[in-house]
């Protein structure tokens, strides 16, 4: 974790987003950073992904960046994290959060539904790991996912956060699997705004939905390929303990 400006925040809340199902997490987090005009404070350096730089407005930028505004920190990745890299990378993130005195982590993502094309307003569900998280979502009227399977990097965050006593919530918007889904991202941001007690305007996100969909095709394809190696299709299955 490389801090280009010293990150000293009282009671920080971390919002964490990796490219995944429908790019819901990435689209939501990027919109949050832009909408709240968050400040870039650092990046994550990892030996587990191929060396890559992004060039934006003539400047080279790191693919996994950290932003801050008030007590909200956002970690946003422009690259999908390969399955073998997730564990060490995310353990490091949790260690960093613990060091910063973080009490709450919210991860953002999508959950694929087969009939997404027919759904006008996708719902957002929360996955929680402790009573503290349950209280938060209950108070804010966010629906809890009662039965299901989540696959990929977020279970690592939830597990590691629980080990060190950090409350963690995963927000999942109903979405397409392999098509970027700004509509689902808007639904996730609506719930996130309530958790952070921040007004996030999603109207412009919905207005530029087609623009986002056409510009994120490459990242979506790369993410879909990475997800194939994670067994993401299991998210449509019924778990044994449901019996």
């Amino acid at each position: 974790m490389v801090e280009e400006c010293k990150v000293e925040v009282k009671n920080p809340i971390l919002v964490f987003a990796l490219p995944g199902t429908g790019l819901v997490g990435s689209i939501s987090a990027l919109h949050l950073v832009q909408n709240l005009k968050m400040e870039y404070v650092g990046y994550i350096e990892t030996p587990f992904t191929n060396p890559i730089f992004f060039i934006h407005k003539g400047k080279v930028t790191e693919p996994i960046r950290i932003f801050r505004k008030g007590n909200v920190l956002v970690i946003l990745s422009e690259i999908p994290i390969p399955p073998n890299a997730s564990e060490p990378l995310l353990k490091k993130v949790i260690e960093w959060c613990k060091g910063k005195g973080c009490k709450l982590i919210v991860t953002l993502g999508g959950i694929p539904i087969p009939n997404r094309v027919d759904v006008e307003k996708p719902r957002c569900f929360a996955v929680t790991t402790n009573g503290g998280a349950d209280e938060i979502i209950k108070k804010l009227n966010i629906e809890k996912l009662i039965e299901g399977i989540i696959v990929g990097p977020y279970p690592i965050i939830l597990r590691e956060a629980r080990k060190v006593g950090i409350t963690a919530i995963t927000l999942l918007g109903e979405s397409f699997r392999d098509i970027p889904d700004p509509g689902s991202a808007a639904s996730v941001l609506d719930s996130l705004g309530r958790i952070l007690n921040v007004k996030i305007d999603t109207q412009d996100l919905l207005e530029k939905a087609e623009e986002i969909r056409i510009k994120t095709r490459d990242l979506m394809r790369k993410t879909s390929q990475t997800m194939q190696g994670m067994g993401k299709k299991r998210e449509m299955e019924v778990p044994l303990m449901y019996v």
Binding site: P114, R177, D178, I179, P180, I214, R217, M220, R221
Partner: peptide
């Protein structure tokens, strides 16, 4: 020409 993203179920 652009190639669209598709899902095949």
């Amino acid at each position: 020409c652009l190639e669209p993203l598709v899902e095949v179920h």
